[in-house]
Design a protein around this nucleic acid. Structure first.
Lengths: 82, 82
DNA sequence: CTGTAGACTCGTGTCGACC
DNA sequence: GGGTCGACACGAGTCTACA
């Protein structure tokens, strides 16, 4: 089960969203409305129990006043993030 | 229609995958097999006609020997990426 | 305001065939 | 090897309701 590395991505993204939302002082409800997604889905996203498509992700990012950045970084580079 | 900015993300990702795949000399078929996704779906991904979930994206990235990086960059920062 | 659960819709992802 | 089409399965995303 290499799903662990995948959960890292989900979990990191969840924290990212939660932090960005708190920074601009929005509630999950308000963010959900701004991104035109379901309120309960934002809850799932922020706890890493959802597997969103990039379309939803882009909407969430836009609602957070941010831009969605998706990139394939080469392992050889070792960007050293955690 | 704010779908344009969303298509940018899809299109950029498509080019990213195509380039990374060419770099390691894999065919779409081989990549599809390595990532355990459908061969025709890789074709759709590389031409930006698909809207993948981050799970699929992570599998593709892993098969390309890369790591999937998803982040919410603040517009104010203007990271100036191309 | 947030987490969870059940039921539901529809689009993501699959598969086979053809070009 | 790669693009496209039609049909399909199942999971992403919605909605209601309760803690």
């Amino acid at each position: 089960m290499k799903r662990k590395s995948f959960c890292q991505v989900k979990d990191r993204l969840a924290e990212d969203i939660k932090t960005a939302r708190a920074k601009i002082g929005l509630s999950q409800e308000a963010l959900a409305h701004a991104a035109e997604v379901d309120r309960t889905y934002v809850s799932q996203l922020e706890r890493g129990v959802a597997n969103p498509s990039i379309q939803i992700l882009h909407r969430i990012a836009a609602a957070l006043g941010s831009e969605l950045s998706i990139s394939l970084v080469n392992i050889s580079n070792e960007p050293r993030d955690l």
